[in-house]
Design a protein around this nucleic acid. Structure first.
Lengths: 216, 216
DNA sequence: GCTATCCGATAGCTACGCTATCCACGTGCG
DNA sequence: CGCACGTGGATAGCGTAGCTATCGGATAGC
């Protein structure tokens, strides 16, 4: 198919497709002549992946490029998630400020094994510091339950990965799952907040609009 | 204190402080004269909160403004998290594309009560759609475990909130916790991925650098 | 031939989060 | 008294990110 058809079937503008090709997140079409290129289903699939990561998970184009490069190059099984993690920076990774020793210790207290050397440790520690700086330090119990929940989803992620036998499929699940799993969890957490809030502090039964947006 | 001292004690440049005042996330100093204003500890605390949300959780200035407005105005207890949620948009909230019916049903199957009308539902559903579009749809078991983990952290969040008796402290915990809790969880999830990956696919014992960055 | 479309490159645009400059004023030190 | 310095307030600019619009040249199909 031609670029106009690719644009039509995916809903992505031609200009954007060209942009993605320029940025290296989408392979150029097969060149048939000086001004003639053909695109296949693989291009459409990749395009959907790119849009899903960018729109659905807020991954930057540079991050998408790293993910797709890893997908195309194949990744080692024991580090499938590690590669994806390196490609998708955490929200709090922009600062270079050092976390407090105490916060790092608190994080280390709830993780084990190889996790103790993970680059995400200082990010989590800085987040704890911010809670303290705002005047609302969090209890150990809170942190422990977060760690427990994180272990549950990590096991779920790996179980899902192990259901695939094809290494390429495993790589896809790891890459996409790292980015989109965050979004799914955040959404479910917010929904659970609403549910739990209603359970603990029931709203007056009169008007059933207890959310920030009077939903339909 | 004056603006220069405020800048020095918080590490935020004077220009940025002025910018925050302009944007309404920081109250102006008390005006003593035409070119003389005094800032207090409250300004320093607010400034640290702003930096924590912006740097630590990637919240936009507009989002911080909504959060601080809610903090200053007081929020209803049964919706403390709701207000914070509205102020901190999810990563995948930029698109307006409609999720598939099927994905919405799958989400609804794992949430209960008031959560069924939550604005985060379509976001989670779109994320599921993206997994499918990439060719790696996720199992019900995976989603159920995510929901279970989300319920655990939601309960932890509310327990933490209920430990405070001061409504202002509860509002702070809800607002900051919504944004920074995401960061803490994402970090712990990534750490857990490393731990779980090592458990399931042990790396060769020779070189202990099994992470994407040869850590120290 | 003529028109429509294509490819490729380049320049521009919008939003965001600052950052730098300018100005007039008033404090405070000598 | 005099004058440099810091201040508040306003405005303009900057750097990055993610597109988007336009241009030039070429060719396919009628």
């Amino acid at each position: 198919m031609r670029i106009s058809e690719l644009s039509r079937t995916t809903g992505v503008s031609i200009a954007s497709i060209k942009y993605y090709i320029r940025e290296g997140v989408l392979a150029p079409g097969e060149v048939d002549g000086p001004n003639r290129s053909t695109y296949g289903d693989a291009h459409a699939a990749r395009l959907r992946l790119v849009r899903g990561l960018v729109e659905g998970a807020g991954v930057s184009i540079a991050g998408v490029k790293r993910i797709t490069a890893a997908l195309d190059g194949g990744m080692p099984l024991n580090d499938a998630f590690g590669v994806a993690q390196a490609a998708v920076p955490l929200a709090g990774a922009t600062t270079s400020e050092e976390p407090s020793e105490e916060a790092v210790e608190r994080i280390l207290a709830v993780v084990e094994g190889i996790g103790r050397f993970h680059p995400a440790i200082p990010i989590a520690a800085r987040a704890l510091d911010t809670f303290a700086v705002v005047g609302e330090p969090l209890s150990e119990k809170w942190l422990a339950r977060y760690a427990e929940a994180a272990a549950i989803v990590a096991r779920a992620d790996f179980d899902e990965l192990e259901e695939r036998s094809d290494p390429a499929a495993q790589a896809r699940i790891a890459a996409v799952g790292t980015a989109l799993g965050d979004v799914v969890f955040q959404s479910l957490r917010r929904i659970a907040h609403a549910t739990e809030g209603e359970r603990r502090f029931p709203s007056p039964p009169a008007s059933p609009s207890s959310d920030q947006e009077t939903s339909s």
